[in-house]
Design a protein around this nucleic acid. Sequence first.
RNA 1: GGCGCGAUAGCUCAGCUGGUUAGAGCGUGCGAUUCAUAAUCGCAAGGUCGGGAGUUCAAGUCUCCCUCGCGCUACCA
Length: 723
Amino acid sequence: MKKRHLVTAALPYANGPLHIGHLAGAYLPADIYVRYLRLMGRDVVFVCGSDEHGAAITVKARKEGTTPRAIVDKYHAMLKDTFEKIGIAFDIYHRTSEPLHHETSQDFFRTLLKNNQFEEKESDQYFDEVAGQFLADRYIVGTCPVCAHPEAYGDQCEKCGSTLSPTDLINPKSMLSGSVPVMRPTKHWYLRLDQHEQWLREWINTGRTAEGGKQLHNPADWKNHVLGQCNSWLEQGLQPRAMTRDLDWGVDVPHEIPGSEGKKLYVWLDAPIGYISATKQWALDNDKDWKPYWQNDDTALIHFIGKDNIVFHCLIFPAILKAHGEFILPVNVPANQFLNLEGRKLSTSKNWAVWVHEYCEEFKGQEDVLRYNMIKKMPEQSDSEFTWKGFQETNNNELVNNLANFVNRVLVLMHKYYDGLVPSVNPDQSFKSGWDAEKTGQYNEELHLLHQKLEAMGAEIERFDFREALRIFMEISSAGNALLQFNEPWKTEKENPEMVKVVMNLALQHVAALSVAARPFLPFAAAKLRDMLNLAPLRDEGDLLDVLNELVEGNPIVLPNHAIGQAAHLFSRIPDEVIQKQIDKLTATDPAPTTTEQEQPNTTPSPSKYEPLKETIQFDDFAKMDLRTGTILTAEKVEKSKKLLKLSVDMGFETRTILSGIAEHFTPEEVVGKQVVVLANLAPRVMMGTESQGMILFAEDSEGKLGFVGPSANGWPNGMGVK
RNA sequence: GGCGCGAUAGCUCAGCUGGUUAGAGCGUGCGAUUCAUAAUCGCAAGGUCGGGAGUUCAAGUCUCCCUCGCGCUACCA
């Protein structure tokens, strides 16, 4: 194992609160890993912070009539508070708007420039002639080519989730001035990723940056989907990537560099360097040196992220680090897959989520219950699912019935029989082992078994299998329950008090071991347990290592005559009403039916389903559109396209070829013969090698389902106007 | 469309380089027990390992094709 660890968790974007998907994907696994390392006495720094730049934040500020600064201040404070409440124990939670970060990333940029890592390239970008500036993708709105949502952004449609590029938008408009943007050439700095392809391929697949080079990591330890995603990119060939953008909210390209006016560092540089700035700030605050953590190959650098971030952390950021020349590469990037909620994908825009700050309000004192559930459902190898019902069952059956109940019965019996003083034991006294009813137990040997379990648990954490680690943790509680069950102190106390002393002492050692081992998973419960046992609070400085060192010798971790505290309930049952309330809340904010309900006609949509009205236009604006009736004659799927159908439409006076993005809604057979309304004077556009000569109108419901729009009477003549 | 990852008991998931009757937790059924938040402990039932073909003495595990889910990507009005 390396001498020291630097652990990062993906920087959350400061334009919204944290939901359980974020938690299960990156922050909780990172936190467990780090807490474990601290318990083992390792040198570890855990950094994170808010990602506060980019156009999405300025857009949000504009919408809400405030400043980007106000937006990031609000969400930074909120995120920081949420992390604290749910027990994510960063060493520092930084933010990219700090001057230190600006300096750090600008220095990085200078070094890359000096090292000839950039090429300057001109490309055409949308430019707002009224506002006199280039437009970030987010600053351009238009109609989504996929779902016809009229307010899609240049990079993404929030309605249907499609990834877009600004040139895809129909009727693009600048959000700054409302004018129609024009294409204009602009210059940017591109990182020569193509020059890094060779060693990246070698590094990803062999753990060495060059043949015969030093072994930096073992690819067998990396997750399948991580390697697969990387190789998929490598095989397609890496292209130079722009590292700067025409933005107005971000880190300036250093001013001394010619052509830097109006240019900001793109998120590719800005965000990951945030890890480094955060480490620097931590070092300043704690009178430490940040450099060994980033520049010494004794350090294990580990990035915890979600699967959408794989390429960024496994290819682009490593390329940046290597291009700089003085930095180490990550030894692992244990990316998780996605967590679904009640059968559907989490969606911020559709408010289909469990918000962590709300959970912390509504379930005060039950932070660990959420953590436990997140671990059980952690999407380590494939997507997983959170349900409120499962949340309740897990809490009641495992945390209350097994763990909390075990702790409670031990403490109650200890007080009953020994007034809360740990009894001394005769190590030769035999009893039934809690691990196997058939086996005769021996005190020191049983303590040694406890050691083995804790060690196995740690090994699983080290290989990022947190669910398995948690299972082993619970095994210790189950074995404790079994120990009591097999030996029945409540029956045997009178006839065989010596045996009961050993059993109760041993049961207490289980509880004590759990009070330490729980720390990575259930930090609040761990603290409560320490208190109940009247043991010193954990210091995060090798407490588990100390326990292991005693147990491996067969020694107890709580000595005879230690006075324990009063028993209290570690976890409480969650009743049906509480769960039902959460389910109601979820379905109230998003009335979308589940799959089984989808058949039901939904005639009374709630007000929230309606899109806001667009701004008022004049009659002249409407009159510009030439709408005509037409009939679809033929339809076929466009090759290599998922969404397009190629249609020929009888317009009466002529037959037109029109491409329409409806292949995911209708089969070609379904649409042939349908009478439709066509926007006939729309400028033609070539897509997938075919020119589209118009646009077909569809009605869309709140689910994104499409319906034909046409004259209600059959046999209406084609080519007629629609007014 | 291309590429990647996944599809295993009612539910949530493990199954490393192919090799004995395919595992765990939860749920279910039966039994034991009462110190404990009607908790606990034991036993049992439950799977043609998404579908099809192939390689092999032997395939959940390798190859090919197909279906479905998710992600990345693409000139998609």
